[in-house]
């Protein structure tokens, strides 16, 4: 078992808060209610990562990727179904007619959306756990997710396992849906769990 029941409960609570903040930000941007599924936390061998995350969404996806560093470090991904990404950016960019593909301005808008949503999620970690997290420039990927995921694993210092925290979301009354994914190395997970334990103790007062 990756986590004890107590660790799983505490980490799940933290993640719920973080993902809820992200959903609130997306709701604000889209003008619609956002529905979240319960998050899952699992560990995978490094080589399994492309298949695991690649299976989250089998249709064409747009992905915003942001690296975060600090006491807890890793990679954060926002995966959006491509058609939904077009709808979202059409409304943000005030396009007069529905687009068929993501043009330059839409890609830029989508990158900024990803920046806002991923910062909302990871910023909650920083605030609640009293650690400072730094972020890379967000990058949009429209090509195969496989290439991106292999580059993450090759660049990682964590050679054997990754911990994947994910949740599915759906924007009500629209076809926008996707996943929030956080990938951590095992040593980062260990530091995260220690910080979560301290947070839990603080909560008890």
């Amino acid at each position: 078992m990756l986590l004890t029941e107590k660790q799983n409960d505490a980490l799940s609570e933290l993640i719920n808060i973080a993902f809820a903040r992200t959903a609130a930000a997306l709701s604000s941007l889209s003008g619609h209610r956002v529905l979240l599924e319960a998050p899952t936390i699992d560990a995978y061998g490094i080589d399994e990562l492309p298949d695991v995350i690649g299976n989250f969404m089998t249709e064409e996806v747009a992905t915003v990727h942001q690296i975060f560093t600090g006491p807890v470090s890793g990679d954060a991904l926002l995966l959006l179904n491509y058609h939904g990404a077009i709808m979202l950016t059409d409304s943000l960019c005030e396009h007069q007619r529905p687009s068929r593909r993501l043009d330059t301005s839409s890609q830029e808008a989508l990158t900024e959306v990803g920046n806002i949503l991923l910062n909302a999620c990871l910023g909650v970690f920083g605030n609640l756990l009293k650690v400072h997290v730094s972020f890379s420039m967000p990058r949009l990927h429209l090509e195969s997710l496989d290439q991106l995921l292999r580059s993450i694993t090759i660049g990682s210092e964590e050679l054997r396992y990754s911990v994947v925290v994910s949740t599915a979301f759906h924007v009500k009354e629209s076809s926008v849906s996707g996943y929030l994914v956080i990938i951590l190395g095992v040593s980062s997970l260990d530091r995260l769990l220690r910080a979560v334990e301290m947070w839990e103790e603080d909560q008890k007062g």
Partner: peptide
């Protein structure tokens, strides 16, 4: 977009007047 309180402290210490988040 960075909502962290620690970031807010850093920028205010550097002389920003205030901080709003996206």
């Amino acid at each position: 977009a960075d909502i962290q309180a620690s970031t807010q402290m850093i920028v205010l210490e550097e002389g920003a007047t205030s901080f709003v988040s996206k």
